[in-house]
């Protein structure tokens, strides 16, 4: 049986159907989880989809982080089960303290919506297990606050624990050390700014995103 993917939907989330399409494209099953729900017992992996949860009021992810579902997701993550945050989902995970650092406004103060090439830094995560370290993928970014920022101590920890998952080849947003995605120390929580769910068919410009979802489905 392929893993059942729980796709979290806050008011303002807008990438849930793309994630669902990507999960189906690799033969997986999914269930949408509304932010007021708390039930995750049937779920094998959680994906927090992108968008503008709670209107990005205050800061992206700041309000979503206190939605009822987040308490269940924190326990799910503590149990070592996979939690993936894409774009706004990454922002939610940093606000919740499940991933270190923060995403600040892009350095050029421009909303970026473009293809970008990324380097796979590690395949030791549930979202990159079917990718090869050092390989390149083309994915799409679509964000205003994607500039990954952390203090020097966090950066040292990320490096020494091999927690940097993806890096930009041509850093479009000013991120520290070209960081596009990271994982936590136990490697089961992954956040990334690019959207693999939008790169699932050559017709869309890339199908490099499929391998991320294959990784997640066939744990």
């Amino acid at each position: 049986m392929p893993n059942l993917i729980g796709i979290v939907v806050f008011p303002g989330t807008n990438c849930e159907f793309d994630v669902a399409e990507a999960v189906e494209a690799v033969g997986g099953n999914y269930r949408f989880i509304f932010h007021l729900d708390k039930e995750l017992s049937d779920i094998d992996a959680v994906v927090i989809a992108g968008g503008f949860a709670h209107g990005d009021y205050l800061r992206p992810g700041a309000i979503a982080r206190f939605s009822p579902i987040m308490e269940s997701i924190e326990k799910f993550a503590e149990d070592g089960r996979p939690v993936i945050g894409i774009c706004n989902g990454f922002q939610v995970l940093t606000e919740a303290g499940l991933l270190p650092g923060a995403l600040q406004k892009n350095s050029n103060l421009t909303f970026l919506c473009e293809p970008t090439v990324l380097n796979i830094e590690t395949n030791e995560t549930p979202f990159t297990s079917k990718l090869s370290p050092g390989s390149k993928v083309k994915l799409f970014i679509n964000h205003f606050s994607g500039n990954y920022t952390c203090n020097d101590q966090t950066l040292q920890e990320l490096k020494s624990n091999n927690q940097i998952v993806l890096t930009y080849l041509n850093n479009p947003n000013g991120s520290t050390q070209n960081i596009a995605g990271i994982c936590n120390a136990t490697r089961n929580v992954v956040g990334l700014m690019p959207h693999p769910e939008r790169a699932i068919d050559e017709l869309l410009g890339s199908d490099d995103g499929l391998k991320f979802f294959k990784s997640l489905i066939n744990l």
Binding site: L58, A62, E95, Q104, T149, C150
Partner: peptide, 8 residues
């Protein structure tokens, strides 16, 4: 808890 992000 909410109004400011201590990282930034």
């Amino acid at each position: 808890r909410l109004l400011a992000n201590p990282v930034l």
